[in-house]
Design a protein around this nucleic acid. Structure first.
Lengths: 224, 224
DNA sequence: ACCTGAACACCGTTCAAGT
DNA sequence: ACCTGAACACCGTTCAAGT
């Protein structure tokens, strides 16, 4: 608050003793977003975090968007690592979806913020290659693999981003308005209000199971 | 720019001769968002549009979020109107999805902006009732209908919002980085780069067809 | 009762000036 | 070569003052 504080903040910078790097800025961005939310990620906040002038960011990134993309890129690197194939194709697809979703939900604010980049992130290349290999070895041809991959990928990303945005919201705030509607006008809705807006993960599992089932049938059909 | 302009703007207000209403503010918000994009929707811009002080909005809405939600609510009213059932269940589900998606893409910026409200919009009640009726009459029981509805609804909304955000982007900007990767490390990706990021509508149709197929099988199973 | 407009506490970004 | 910090052109929102 007081201008004299800036001097103290400046002194703090000596701690690292290293010069400002892209990675240091990315790490700070991730830390702020994860602990205080996306809204807290401002140039001034990042500067304070690193004991550096807020505008120093522009020495390393063209603008804020480029910094946020770099952060998202780092968060998505190796997203499919640790995935183990069992040979049960639909089950393996569900496992792939589950592991990717988990990564998204671990850093909801930042990945929500950056869901629409102007081009593919670097870390997407490795993930897309792995996913393409999965579909190709599962029996899909070149065109089919791409179509299947894109639908599944979009479903995972879109659903995880959407669920991340809903985390921590009051479920009853969603159900109550529907539960109070007149039964004569809204018979089904009044009846089912208590069933709506259930567990995010269960809904995701159900959706990906539907996609896995339908894709498994087309896969078998392509083979036999 | 000049302060004298404000007087001219004030004079313009007489045009309407009516007092400021919630609906007038909502209509102005929609017009600005549709023609100039979401970023152009500011209190000052809305005030100028109606020849009214920017802070007059706070007489009718608690904050900007409430105004944007009201705008989204108006845009989604009657979203399933005009839908005609043929009796071919999977085809009808695809038609339902198509008509809902079209509405979202007609007002991409505003619906993208407001995708995550703190509770259901008023217009959602009628749409959800109609969709529940569709699933129930298709042979799903109370629990199954809700699960199916939620997955389909989430898919439509999430995919349309995501596609809206991608509209007008350069497809080659997405393909080029992948096409240039080394074949030895990324054999599948280098091979399939030109097939990626194709037509949004086709991808949506494919995804909804997969869901419709899988749901149709579970529906039949529940019946027989 | 309703609207105004000055003011507050913020933003992202630019650029001349420092070291 | 790199960083600073003042400044610019914006935001959403509050509130005392007007009519």
């Amino acid at each position: 608050m007081q201008p004299s504080r800036a001097v103290t903040e400046n002194g703090r910078r000596r701690r690292g003793a290293t010069t400002l790097t892209r990675d240091a800025l990315v790490v700070a961005t991730i830390r702020i977003a994860d602990t205080e939310g996306a809204a807290a990620v401002t140039m001034r906040r990042i500067g304070a975090e690193l004991g550096v002038d807020p505008t120093a960011v522009y020495r390393h990134f063209r603008d804020k968007d480029e910094l946020l993309q770099a952060a998202a890129d780092k968060l998505l690197a190796g997203i499919l690592d640790g995935l183990e194939m069992t040979g049960d194709w639909p089950a393996d697809l569900r496992a792939l979806a589950r592991i990717a979703r988990r990564r998204y939900l671990e850093h909801p604010d930042l990945l929500l913020l950056v869901a629409s980049a102007p081009g593919p992130l670097q870390s997407e290349a490795a993930a897309t290659e792995a996913a393409l290999a999965f579909f190709r070895s599962g029996g899909f041809d070149r065109e089919e693999a791409v179509r299947a991959l894109e639908v599944v990928q979009d479903y995972i990303v879109a659903m995880s981003v959407m669920d991340a945005g809903r985390r921590g919201e009051d479920v009853d705030a969603w159900r109550r308005p529907f539960a109070g509607l007149p039964r004569t006008e809204y018979p089904y809705l009044a009846d089912s209000a208590s069933l709506l807006y259930g567990d995010d993960d269960e809904r995701f599992e159900y959706g990906i199971a539907l996609l896995a089932d339908a894709l498994d049938r087309r896969r078998s059909h392509a083979r036999g």
